[in-house]
């Protein structure tokens, strides 16, 4: 079950981040991921996330979004979990604002495995009890713990 424990690190888990817009949020995400993942630049992550979003929203509905894209110099799939202080507009299919984001960055090759990982993440985040537990987390340490130790 622990798809997240393979993808996340404590450094890439941020609880109740401030952020008033999609653009600023992507800046935060790009900076968090690049600091924790040598070889991947902040500018590249930012540009790729924006480009993917332009083709169609990665919002899942019910306040969840899973922005994902391929990245150069990325050796293995990388995850980053962020909950937000205030929900932001994300052009989600149900038009609800988003307050939980899981970013998935994958290497440029091996298409099929990525789709499977993405599907597993989407299944996990479609459980409302899991999302509620993440929303309630008081700090990043607990958030990381809950995300990686969750039993369905």
């Amino acid at each position: 079950m622990h798809v997240l424990s393979e993808l996340l690190t404590p450094g890439r888990t941020v609880c109740r981040a401030p952020g008033s817009s999609k653009k600023r949020l992507f800046e935060t995400l790009a900076s968090v991921v690049s600091e924790d993942s040598p070889g991947i630049t902040e500018a590249d992550i930012f540009a790729q996330l924006i480009a993917r979003e332009r083709l169609g929203s990665t919002g899942l509905g019910a306040g969840i979004a899973i922005p994902h894209c391929r990245i150069a110099n990325c050796n293995q799939p990388i995850g980053c979990l962020v909950t937000l202080e205030e929900p932001i507009d994300f052009d989600a299919p149900d038009d609800l604002p988003v307050d939980i984001l899981f970013v998935l960055l994958v290497p440029e090759e091996a298409h099929q495995t990525h789709l499977e990982i993405l599907a597993r993440i989407a299944r996990l985040f479609s459980q409302s009890s899991f999302c509620e537990a993440l929303r309630d987390a008081p700090d990043s340490r607990v958030l990381f713990q809950r995300a990686t130790e969750w039993q369905a």
Binding site: Q48, A51, R52, L55, G56, S57, T58, L60, I66, H68, C69, R70, V106, H111, H114, L115, L118, A119, A122
Partner: peptide, 9 residues
């Protein structure tokens, strides 16, 4: 024309 959720760019 928007791509669905499962699209990787």
């Amino acid at each position: 024309f928007a791509v669905g959720f499962g699209f990787f760019s």
